[in-house]
Amino acid sequence: MNKIMLFAQLKEDAGKSAIETKAAGKTVGELRDFLEKETPLGNLDGIMIAVNEEFVKDDWIIEEKDVIALIPPVSGG
């Protein structure tokens, strides 16, 4: 299983800070499609995806136990 961490508006919308799903073997793009279609998270355009605390692109392949995070546009500073 893979933990998918949620922040900011996504966390509020979901009512929790993380969800679990089986993502190993999927690309980040496939995971994005899956989350959009099969979860209430909705449209994820503009949301970056980090795997194990690094930004990755849609062709990155997810492995077992990778920690995934959905990163909305940041607004620190």
Partner: peptide
């Protein structure tokens, strides 16, 4: 949440 552009390109 500022900077959250969810739903746009």
């Amino acid at each position: 949440w500022v900077g959250n552009q969810q739903g746009t390109k």
